[in-house]
Design a protein around this nucleic acid. Sequence first.
DNA 1: GACCAGGCACATC
DNA 2: GATGTGCATGGT
Length: 210
Amino acid sequence: MRNPLIEIYDILLDFFGPQDWWPGDTPFEVMIGAILTQNTNWGNVQKAVRNLMHAGALTPHAIYKMENERLSELIRPAGYYNIKAKRLKSFVEFFMEKYSGRTDKIRETDMTSLREYLLGVNGIGPETADSILLYALEKPVFVIDTYTKRILSRHGIMDSSESYDSFQELFHESLPAKVPLFNEYHALLVKTGKEFCRPKPHCHGCPLKR
DNA sequence: GACCAGGCACATC
DNA sequence: GATGTGCATGGT
């Protein structure tokens, strides 16, 4: 039998088309977005990012210097604004102190070490770390989110109780490690999740037959 | 008004 | 290791 993950990818790409996902004007904006979108609607994240932009605060240096209180007020629309202000600060401190806030420097670090460093930052868990690695730094890691777990478990491919790393291993074993593929596939899974595979599923019309 | 959103840290057993 | 809870805005 053919690789089920490749079958699913082909079906979803054919059905939805390319997603052109996670656009951001700069890699740093994508990193910030990865933290702000934790358990949060993307539309709210965009409002927060706009506020930061208008405040001239879309640079590592600006956020590094900013008072927590002002930062949390700017990102208020994204929800959890107090805790996310701390998380942004923790990340930016790491980025400034280890890489001088320079994308080219952080990009030079090998993927495995960098993932460990990111996971060591307070407020960055596996999904946020992998989103930064894939979407901002173009490293070939597959991002697992709640939709990914839900879709695979509902289709009997892997039990939902399995760990983040187990889900990720399945993708890494099943697919060639290519950034454009991982990027597009994850985006398609989120699209499918939003349309058909929410907690209360409305499966009618879903291209993945049960 | 209920439900949900591109999670994570921390407490407790 | 598994389970429960706090964090919070805004769209449907």
